[in-house]
Computed example of a mutant assay.
Amino acid sequence: MRDVVAKNLRRLRADRGWSQERLALESGLNRTYLSAVERSEQNISVDNIARIADALNVEAAVLFTP
């Protein structure tokens, strides 16, 4: 599941033309943390999934969809 979230996060961010810095700013999360999530190196909490989904203006379920 971590790989699915990582892939979707990278894709959604890239689709918007956002850097990791921009997503960090929009979500209130640390850029290094987001980078680790995108590389499947870091577990992510439900709260942070919600913050990222809000920043990207998508339903949280989109991040979990293979």
Rank of each mutant, 00 (worst) to 15 (best):
W18L: 04
L9S: 00
L34R: 01
V4A: 05
R51G: 00
A61V: 11
N43V: 09
E38S: 05
R22I: 08
I52D: 00
R11G: 07
M1V: 12
Y33L: 10
A50Y: 13
V46Q: 06
S19F: 03
D54R: 08
R11Y: 10
L29G: 06
P66I: 07
Q42F: 02
I44V: 13
V46K: 09
R10H: 14
L12E: 11
G28P: 02
D47H: 06
R39K: 13
P66H: 09
R13D: 03
W18F: 08
S35W: 15
D15G: 11
A14K: 13
E21Q: 14
L34P: 03
V4F: 00
N48P: 07
R13C: 06
R16T: 07
I49V: 14
S27W: 01
Q20T: 14
N48M: 05
I44P: 02
R39G: 08
I52R: 07
A36C: 10
L63K: 08
A50M: 12
V5A: 08
A60G: 07
P66L: 11
E26K: 11
A36L: 14
I44Q: 01
N30F: 03
S40F: 02
A55F: 01
P66V: 11
Q20V: 14
R51N: 03
F64Y: 15
T65V: 07
I49C: 11
S19C: 09
N43E: 12
L63A: 01
A50R: 08
M1Y: 04
N43K: 10
I52N: 02
V62S: 09
K7D: 13
N57Y: 05
N8R: 06
S40A: 15
V58S: 10
L12M: 14
D54T: 13
A24G: 12
